Every structure is written in structure tokens, then in C-alpha cells.
Amino acid sequence: MDFMIRTWISLVALSFAAPLSAQEGPDDGVNADMILALKGLQLLDHRLNAIGYRLVDANAPYCDEKAARTGLLLNDVAQYVDQETARFALGFDGSIGITAVAPDSPAELAKLSPGDTLLAINTMPVGEIATDDPELSNQQPVYRRVAAINQLLEQALAEDKVELTISQGGISRTVAIGSVMTCPSQFQIRVSADRSASADGKLVSVTSRLAEYFLSDDEFAAVVAHELAHNLLKHRDRLDAEGVNRGFFGQFGNSAEKIKDSEIEADRLSVWLMANAGYDPQAAIGFWTRYGKEHGKGILSASTHYRWKKRVQLFEEEIAEMEAIRPVDGKYAPPLLAKTD
């Protein structure tokens, strides 16, 4: 099915998924164009949240570090200039709410839904959660509150089940939610006109324009798995320890070679991550062939990345190596990851 058709069908579905209180029609001053844009962004959030959760969950046995995950994606309307419109479009009663729930996650099992408003975690009102933790200092101020909430939620889940106070359509309820231990990483759609993706060691970001370019979730997963591989292999820490320059001069000499080595590793690991999560690793070949023919060298046309034909050859070699071994319980142990089980 054509992606734009799927998008409009999904937007309609999302509009009916919002609480009934948000279906009565916008008040004066609510921007209809912004509502449609936010619904489109929410659709991309749904896709990335589902793909990211599936990748970290399926590959958990091979990660040396793990994090408690629920499958929830939270959003803070304070990050939008027009908060009234954002609250209406997302269906929130308050400021912090659920944007997406990953399929087959503890959040789905707890019957949480997009549009639910988060009021408290274990009786702690979200408005009272401290945002001055030094670990949050690298976050932009508008994202700091939701980052603090996610941090508290993860810490609480690592100890036991958590009770969330939720509001939907003005009706409050308390929901017990568990978690699963997955590979560590979080995922976000970054609104941008550029087609790019990145990883900072903890977070995978995909721009909205690139997310709209994918023809399937398998293609989407190919790029997400590549960025996730950077995080799992701790490439940022390694490059920092080696004194690699990631700025302009990082495109030359020793720095460029070290960055390229990390890109090759991420490509190699990505197809294993995809296969273990049930995505078709051949989609990496299809995506980079299509993207390469249309845009040349790829997302980053720099000396630190292989040109697309060489990337495709690398994927083919890695897939052949993976298919030559026998999977255990339908999964392949990635050679680049330390196996913990």
C-alpha cells in the first residue's frame, strides 16, 4: 500500500484513539494545520517506538548491559509553542502524556493507550519530579522534564513493579505496570528537513524527513538497527577515549579511519539485530541501493562512510555469514556483541 495512503488511514485511526473529550472539535485559537502535523508526527513516533522496542527486546540476551523498559513513549506539551493545540492534538488532559505504546510490551499488557495523561509515578506527582540531576544537564530545557520522568520511571522499574496514576478523558485510575530488561537505548523522532539519523550513546534519533522516506518498517529498522549498533558497541565512548575529532577535521587522517571502522562495525551488527527482531535484513540492501541511486553516497557523504555499493556488498557478506550458522530459538548470536546468557 502506498505510504501516503497508509499515513492518512493511520492519522484517522489516531484521531479516533484520542479520548472522547478531545473529539468534540477544537476551541477557537486551536490551529487545525498544526493538529494534522502533530498527528503525522505521532504516527512516526508510533513506528519508531515499536521498531526500537522490538530491536532492544529481541536482542537483550546478547547485551552486556540492560535497562528496564515498558514500551511507553512519553511527551511533554511544554516543548510546543502552541500548547493548547498540542494538548488537543495528542489527546492529553495535562502536560505529560503517552504518545505511543509498543506492541507486545508491558505497557500494552497494562492496557495503557496513546492519549493517556500521566499524573504520578508511585504517588509522586510528575510536576514534583526534580529536573536538576547533573545527568540531565546535556538535555535542552524543554526536554529536561520528560527526561527526568523517564529516568525516575526506569529507576523505579529496576526495583519492582510501578503504579502509574493515569487520566483519560478526565477520569483518573491507577495502573500497575511491569517491565522487561532489554538492551539499553531510547529512540526519538527529531523534526527536521534533513534526512539523517544519529546515535549519542544512549539515544537513537531519526529525522522526520528520513522517517517519511522509508517504504516499509523493515527499511526503517535497517537504519534504526545501524544507529542502535553504535550505542551497543559504545562507539562514542571508544572514539572519545581515542581522541577522535568528530568535527570538520574528523573527515581526514586517523580520525576519519577510526570513524569509518565504527561505521563498518555498525553496518555489520545491524543485520544481526534486524534478523533477531524478525525484520528482513535484506531490507538494508534494498534501502541503501535505492537511497544510493537517488542521493549518491548515502546519508553522510563523507570519507568516514562507505559509498553505497560497498555498503551493500558488506551487508551481503554479513548476511551470508549469518545464514551459514544455525540459529538457536530462532536467533543468531552476533559476533560483535558479548553474549551474556
Results as ranks from 00 to 15, higher is better:
156 A>P: 02
326 R>S: 08
262 S>T: 15
6 R>A: 15
272 W>R: 11
15 S>L: 12
13 A>F: 09
211 A>T: 06
75 N>V: 12
38 L>W: 14
226 H>F: 08
311 R>I: 02
177 I>H: 08
335 P>V: 01
170 G>V: 03
36 L>M: 14
324 A>C: 04
245 N>A: 05
239 L>F: 02
130 A>P: 13
44 L>S: 07
183 C>F: 10
252 F>Y: 13
300 L>T: 07
290 R>P: 03
269 L>N: 07
217 D>Q: 11
138 N>V: 12
290 R>V: 00
106 P>V: 00
268 R>S: 11
234 K>S: 09
251 Q>Y: 08
250 G>C: 09
336 L>A: 08
44 L>K: 12
154 E>M: 13
212 E>R: 03
104 D>P: 05
146 V>Q: 00
13 A>H: 09
204 V>R: 01
299 I>M: 13
42 Q>T: 10
221 A>N: 01
333 A>K: 13
88 F>D: 03
313 Q>N: 15
121 I>G: 04
215 L>T: 11
177 I>W: 04
100 A>E: 05
4 M>Q: 15
234 K>Y: 04
284 A>W: 10
335 P>L: 07
289 T>M: 13
18 A>V: 09
50 A>D: 10
198 S>A: 15
125 P>W: 02
202 K>N: 14
228 L>W: 10
164 L>M: 04
7 T>P: 06
95 S>D: 10
258 K>L: 13
312 V>S: 11
34 M>K: 13
149 I>S: 07
266 A>V: 08
223 V>C: 02
43 L>Q: 11
280 D>T: 06
40 G>C: 08
146 V>E: 00
292 G>H: 08
80 Y>V: 03
23 Q>S: 05
211 A>Y: 01
205 S>T: 11
71 G>A: 02
120 A>M: 04
66 K>P: 02
189 I>R: 02
167 S>E: 04
31 N>R: 12
130 A>L: 05
226 H>E: 06
312 V>R: 12
288 W>E: 02
214 F>G: 09
94 G>S: 10
327 P>T: 03
65 E>P: 05
242 E>G: 06
53 Y>D: 00
287 F>D: 04
65 E>G: 08
96 I>E: 04
256 A>Y: 05
316 E>V: 05
211 A>E: 02
339 K>F: 08
105 S>F: 02
84 E>V: 12
42 Q>D: 08
279 Y>D: 01
54 R>Y: 06
50 A>C: 06
109 L>E: 11
226 H>M: 13
253 G>T: 04
8 W>E: 15
6 R>N: 14
50 A>T: 08
27 D>F: 14
216 S>G: 03
46 H>L: 01
54 R>E: 07
43 L>F: 09
70 T>A: 02
287 F>V: 01
99 T>R: 12
169 G>S: 02
